[in-house]
Write a protein that binds this DNA or RNA. Structure first.
Length: 946
RNA sequence: GCAGGGGUGGCAGAGCUUGGCCAAAUGCGACGGGCUUAGGACCCGUUUCCUUUGUGGAUGCAAGAGUUCAAAUCUCUUCCCCUGCACCA
C-alpha cells in the first residue's frame, strides 16, 4: 500500500466525479464553513486540525444523505501581508529562512516584496495543500477577501450596521511608534510583544512654596497613605510643563516626549537635572504630611512621569531606595508607614524593623540572584499577597480588601482633582520593529463597532441561545465573551481591504470585514462575473434579506433576472442548516463577532446553528513554532507519512478541544493499523463462508455496537473516541476473532466493509482503497453511512467472551501462585454452579433482604423452593451468607447452568491452548471436586490439578 | 485580578453528564518470552503492593472534609496548572 499513489488516485477520482461540487437540489442541505486561511504562509500539519475536522463533518453528513456544501475562500485583508512585503524589502533574513523551511524557491521570494504577489502565491499554494489534504471542498466558489465583488458585499453590511447605530466614534488608546507614526500591534513589535496598555491613576503632589506639582503614576493608589517621600532619578533630565494648558508640573523630559501622544504638554522654563529637584518638599494630598524628594536608583525616566511616589512599607524597590539614602545620611528620619495588613500574620509594630512588610519580602528572596532580581520577585510576591489577602488598616477604609480600596481611593482622588487618569505601557519597554520604543497614543477620532450596545447584545444572546456549541463545555466561555465584548476599533489607517464607508481614506479592520462572509459562498460563483457597479445594496437586500421585488431589483441593477433569482434561491437553500468551525484562538474575537453580526444583519432563519471549536496540534510533544523549528509543512507530512496518517493523528488523536499530537511513533502506530486492515481485506476472497457460530455473533455484536457509538460520537465530533473504536479497537477485535479458528468470510467482509465506511470521513483515501480492494465499484465517500442492527447487539454473547477472558485470567493467576511453590498445573477442571444458586442470587439481588432469605432457608422445607432437598440446607445457607456480604453489589444473571456449561464445553480447546494444559468442564451437582461448592454463577470454580 | 478550562497509573490519555461489572479503556514506554544470523518489524505475556489451591485482600484517580450501603464519578474547602483579557490576524 503506497500512500502517495492512493492519495493521488482517489483525489483525482473524486475530482473527476465532481462529488464535492454541490448545488441546490431536492435533498436537505448542510453547509460546513471554516475560518478561511490568511494568505501569508503555506499550510502546515497544524492547519489540518481545523480544516480536517470540518471536512470530517462534511464527509459524514454527505454519507448521511445530506446535500453538503463545503466551500473555501482566502483572507488577505489587513496589515500582515503589507508587513510581510516590507520585511522582505528590508532584507529580513529571519523571514527568508522561514520561507525556505517551506521550500519556497528563491525567485518566488524575490517577488514577494509585492503584497499582491504574496497573496496570489499563497492562494495557489494553500489551495494545492488543501487538495492534498483530501478536503472535500467545492472550489468553484472560492474568492479572496480583497476581491472587489466581495468588498461590495462588505460595504452593504456596514451600511446596515451604520443605519442600526452600531458604529460610533470616540477616543481610544493605542500602542504607537513615534518614529513610523503609526499604530503598532503585536505583529509590529520585536519579539511579538503585545503592547499592554493600562489605565492608571496619576496623583498630584503639591510642591511647598511653589505653585507647582510633581505627578506620579501608580498601580497602587491605595498606598498613597503610606507615601513617605517621592523619588526622582538624580541623573535624568526633568522639565516643568503645562499640561493641557494648565498648571505647572515637573516630569522627566523623556516622559514629556512619551506623554505628548495623550496629553497636551508645553514646556515652561529651563531643563533641570534630577539632583536639582532634591531640595524640594511636597505635600501628600491625602495626609497633608510634608515629604522630601530623594534619589531613586531604580527610577526610569521613560516610565510613567519619571517621578515615583515612595511607599517603603509596601514596595521593595522603594524600601531599598530609602535605605540607600539613609545609609548616605539623607532623610534618616523616614519611617515606613503600613497601610494594609495580611490577617493571621503577626501584627506589625514600629519597634521591630524586620516586620516592615516590604523588608520581609526582600528577605524572602534575598538569595535569588542580583539585587534587581530580588526586588523584582519580592515586589511581585508582595503585590500578589496583599492584593489577595490584604486588609486596609487606614481610618475610613479599615477592613477593605486591597482591590476594593484601590478602586475607591482612585475614584475619590480623581473626583477631587487630586489625581487624573493616564494610560501607560505596563510592559514597557516594548520595541517597534524599527527599533523605537512604543508609546501610548490616544486617538480621538476612532471609529468603533459598538458591541456594547445593549440592544445588539440582547440580540446576540438570543442568537446564541439557538446555537449548538461543540464541545458543549465551551458554552459558558461564549456567554462570557458575548458579555465582555465592547467597543471594537473598526477602521484602520492602513492595510488591505474595503474602504470604511464613513471615512473613505480608512480601511475596514480585517476581522470586522469577515464576520458574515460565509453567506457569500452561496452566491460567489454566480456573482463573480457580474460587473462591479451592478452589485448595489438593493441586490444584497433582496438576496440575503428578502427585501424588495425580484423584477425591480433586476431592473435597477441591470443584472440578469435569472442570476438574481438563482442567487436568492441558493442563499435560502444553503443558509439554514450549517456548522461553523475554527480554532480556540478565535472564540473571543471572530466567533463572537460572527454571532453579533449575524444577529444584526440576517433574519432569524439564517442565524448560526452550530459552532465547533477545536484545539491545536503539538509536534513531538511541543507547540509548533518557528523558533523550535518543529513545524511540519503539510506537503512534507503527506509525502512522508501519507495524507490519511496525518489526518488521523491530527484530527482524531485527541478530544475536540484538546491539543492533538503528531509524532513519528504515533504515525507508525496508525500506519500499522491501516496496513493490517489492508492485509485482512485482501485475504477475504480466500476465506470460506459458513453458518454463524459463537465468535461470529460476537463479531456482529461488537460491530453493531460500534456503529451505534461511533455514530453518536461523530455527531458530537468526539473523533478521538470514534477513531479509537473504529481504527484501533477493530484491529484488536479482528485479531482476537482470527485467533479463534477458521474465519467466516462473510463475517469478515461485513465487518471490514462497515469499518471502512466509518473510517472514510477521517481517512478517506485509505478507505476508498480498501473499499475497492473488496470489489466495490462505487465511491466510499458517497456511500451510505452504516446503520446499526440492534438485534445483533448481544450482551449475552459479549458477556460470554468476557467470562472466558476472566476464567483465563483467574486461572493464570492461580497457576502463577502455584509455580512459586514449585507445583505445576497438569489439568484444569471448571465446575459450573448449579441453578439453585442463580435463583437465590437473582432473588436476593431483587429484594436486597438477607433476613427474609435466611428466614426462608431456616423454615421447614425452606430449601425446596430452590430445588434442594433438606440435605442441601447447609450449603444453601453457606452460599446465602456469602451473598449477604455483598448484597448491595449483586448483579442478576440470566444464563442458566446449561448455557454456561455449553459455552465452556465448546470453548475447551481455546481455553486449553491459552492455559497450556487440558481443560475439562463439569456441573456442580455432579462434581466430586472439593472445590465444587465454590462455584458461583458466571464464576465457575477452577480446580487446578497438579 | 477577572473569566473559562483542567489536575487520573512510568508517560500520553479515556472514564466524571446518568455513583456500583473501575486496579481504571487505548496507545506509548519498560520488562520477560517467541520469531530472527543479528537488528528492526511482528506475535504472546507482565507492568501498585500483598497473597505457595488461590477466582481474594490492601492501598489508590491533586490534598482534605462531607453525602451514600457504595465515590475517580456528587457537594464543600484548599493547593496547583493552562488559556484569554482586545482593536491583532
Amino acid at each position: 500500500m503506497d500512500y502517495k499513489e492512493i492519495d493521488g488516485k482517489w483525489q483525482k477520482a473524486w475530482q473527476d466525479a465532481r462529488i464535492f461540487e454541490s448545488d441546490v437540489n431536492g435533498k436537505e442541505s448542510y453547509l460546513v464553513t471554516v475560518a478561511f486561511p490568511y494568505v501569508n504562509a503555506p499550510l502546515h500539519i497544524g492547519h489540518v486540525r481545523t480544516y480536517g475536522t470540518a471536512d470530517v463533518l462534511a464527509r459524514y453528513k454527505r454519507m448521511r444523505g445530506f446535500n453538503v456544501l463545503f466551500p473555501m475562500a482566502f483572507h488577505a485583508t489587513g496589515t500582515p501581508i503589507l508587513a510581510f512585503a516590507k520585511r522582505l524589502r528590508n532584507g529580513d533574513t529571519e523571514l527568508v529562512s522561514e520561507l525556505k523551511l517551506f521550500h519556497i524557491a528563491d525567485q518566488e521570494i524575490a517577488q514577494m516584496t509585492d503584497p499582491k504577489y504574496i497573496a496570489s502565491y499563497f492562494v495557489k499554494e494553500i489551495e494545492t495543500g488543501m487538495h492534498r489534504a483530501g478536503l472535500s471542498v467545492d472550489w468553484r466558489r472560492k474568492f479572496v477577501s480583497t476581491d472587489p465583488f466581495f468588498s461590495k458585499f462588505v460595504e452593504w453590511q456596514f451600511g446596515i450596521l451604520n443605519r442600526k447605530g452600531y458604529i460610533v466614534k470616540g477616543k481610544h488608546p493605542v500602542g504607537w511608534c513615534p518614529n513610523e507614526n503609526q499604530a503598532v500591534g503585536m505583529h509590529d513589535t520585536k519579539k511579538d510583544a503585545e503592547p499592554d496598555i493600562e489605565k492608571e491613576t496619576t496623583i498630584k503632589f503639591k510642591v511647598e512654596g511653589e505653585d507647582a506639582y510633581f505627578i506620579c503614576t501608580t498601580f497602587r493608589p491605595e498606598t498613597v497613605f503610606g507615601v513617605t517621600n517621592l523619588f526622582v532619578n538624580r541623573n535624568s533630565d526633568y522639565i516643568a510643563c503645562k499640561i493641557n494648558g494648565e498648571g505647572t508640573y515637573y516630569i522627566s523630559k523623556q516622559a514629556a516626549a512619551n506623554l505628548k501622544y495623550q496629553l497636551n504638554i508645553e514646556q515652561v522654563g529651563e531643563e533641570l537635572k534630577g539632583y536639582e529637584l532634591l531640595d524640594k518638599k511636597c505635600r501628600n494630598p491625602l495626609t497633608d504630611i510634608i515629604i522630601p524628594l530623594l534619589n531613586g536608583f531604580f527610577v526610569k525616566e521613560g516610565f510613567g512621569t519619571g517621578v515615583v511616589m515612595s511607599v517603603p512599607a509596601h514596595a521593595p524597590f522603594d524600601y531599598m531606595a530609602v535605605e540607600k539614602n539613609k545609609a548616605a545620611g539623607v532623610a534618616t528620619e523616614i519611617k515606613p508607614i503600613v497601610v494594609l495588613e495580611i490577617p493571621e500574620k503577626e501584627p506589625l509594630t514600629e519597634s521591630k524593623v524586620a516586620d516592615i512588610p516590604a523588608e520581609k519580602y526582600i528577605r524572602m528572596f534575598e538569595t535569588e540572584g542580583s539585587e534587581d532580581e530580588t526586588l523584582e520577585k519580592a515586589t511581585k510576591q508582595q503585590y500578589k499577597d496583599e492584593s489577595h489577602y490584604g486588609k486596609m488598616i487606614i481610618e475610613g477604609y479599615k477592613g477593605m480588601s486591597e482591590p476594593e480600596a484601590r478602586e475607591k481611593i482612585s475614584k475619590e482622588l480623581v473626583a477631587s482633582k487630586k489625581a487624573f487618569e493616564l494610560y501607560i505601557l505596563a510592559n514597557a519597554p516594548v520595541k517597534c520593529r524599527c527599533g523605537y520604543d512604543v508609546v501610548v497614543k490616544v486617538v480621538d477620532d476612532q471609529w468603533f463597532l459598538n458591541y456594547g450596545n445593549p440592544e445588539w447584545k440582547a440580540l446576540a444572546k438570543e442568537a446564541f441561545s439557538g446555537i449548538n456549541v461543540l464541545p458543549e463545555k465551551l458554552r459558558k466561555t461564549f456567554e462570557a465573551a458575548i458579555d465582555w465584548i465592547d467597543l471594537r476599533a473598526v477602521a484602520r489607517a492602513q492595510g488591505l481591504g474595503t474602504p470604511f464607508p464613513l471615512e473613505k481614506e480608512k480601511i475596514i479592520e480585517s476581522l470586522s470585514d469577515s464576520t458574515i462572509y460565509m453567506s457569500f459562498y452561496t452566491v460567489s460563483n454566480m456573482l463573480r462575473d457580474v460587473e462591479i457597479e451592478k452589485l448595489k445594496p438593493e441586490l444584497f437586500d433582496y438576496i440575503f434579506l428578502g427585501k424588495g421585488d425580484l423584477g425591480l431589483v433586476a431592473d435597477s441593477t441591470g443584472i440578469d433576472f435569472q442570476v438574481v433569482k438563482r442567487c436568492k434561491e441558493s442563499f435560502d437553500y444553503w443558509y439554514r442548516n450549517m456548522s461553523r468551525h475554527s480554532g480556540a484562538d478565535l472564540i473571543f474575537n471572530h466567533l463572537t463577532m460572527y454571532i453579533f453580526n449575524h444577529a444584526a444583519i440576517f433574519g432569524k432563519a439564517n442565524w448560526p446553528k452550530q459552532i465547533v471549536v477545536n484545539g491545536n496540534v503539538l509536534s513531538e510533544g511541543e507547540k509548533m513554532s518557528k523558533s523550535i523549528g518543529n513545524i511540519v509543512p503539510l506537503v512534507d507530512g503527506v509525502e512522508k507519512y501519507g495524507t490519511d496518517v496525518i489526518r488521523t493523528l491530527v484530527i482524531a488523536s485527541a478530544d475536540l478541544f484538546s491539543d492533538s499530537e503528531f509524532s513519528e511513533v504515533s504515525a507508525r502506530g496508525v500506519d500499522e493499523r491501516f496496513r493490517y486492515l489492508y492485509e485482512i481485506a485482501s485475504k477475504i476472497d480466500a476465506m470460506e463462508s459458513g453458518e454463524l457460530r459463537h465468535m461470529d455473533y460476537w463479531m456482529y455484536s461488537k460491530l453493531n455496537r460500534k456503529i451505534k457509538t461511533a455514530t453518536s460520537q461523530v455527531e458530537r465530533l468526539e473523533l478521538r473516541g470514534m477513531s479509537t473504536g473504529v481504527i484501533y479497537d477493530s484491529v484488536l477485535e479482528l485479531k482476537k476473532y482470527l485467533s479463534r479458528g477458521e474465519p467466516n468470510g462473510i463475517v469478515v467482509r461485513d465487518y471490514i466493509s462497515n469499518i471502512v465506511l466509518m473510517m472514510s470521513p477521517i481517512a478517506p483515501h485509505v478507505s476508498e482503497e480498501l473499499w475497492h480492494l473488496m470489489g466495490n465499484t462505487t465511491l466510499a465517500s458517497v456511500e451510505k453511512w452504516p446503520t446499526p442492527d440492534e438485534s445483533m447487539i448481544s450482551d449475552k454473547v459479549e458477556g460470554e467472551e468476557e467470562l472466558l477472558e476472566s476464567i483465563i485470567a483467574d486461572s493464570k493467576q492461580i497457576t502463577a501462585l502455584m509455580t512459586k511453590s514449585a507445583k505445576k498445573a497438569k489439568a484444569i477442571k471448571l465446575i459450573v454452579a448449579d441453578d439453585w444458586k442463580r435463583k437465590m442470587l437473582n432473588e436476593l439481588c431483587k429484594s436486597k433482604n438477607v433476613g427474609d432469605l435466611m428466614g426462608k432457608l431456616n423454615a421447614e422445607n425452606g430449601t425446596a423452593e430452590f430445588g434442594l432437598d433438606a440435605s442441601g440446607k447447609e450449603k444453601a445457607v453457606k452460599y446465602a451468607q456469602q451473598l449477604a456480604k455483598k448484597v448491595n453489589t449483586l448483579r442478576s444473571v440470566s444464563s442458566t447452568q446449561e448455557d454456561e456449561y455449553r459455552l465452556l464445553d465448546e470453548s475447551k480447546g481455546y481455553l486449553s491452548s491459552m492455559l497450556g494444559c487440558p481443560v475439562t468442564v463439569e456441573v456442580e451437582s455432579k462434581s466430586t471436586s472439593q472445590r465444587s461448592a465454590n462455584a458461583a454463577p458466571l464464576r465457575p470454580s477452577i480446580d487446578i490439578l497438579s
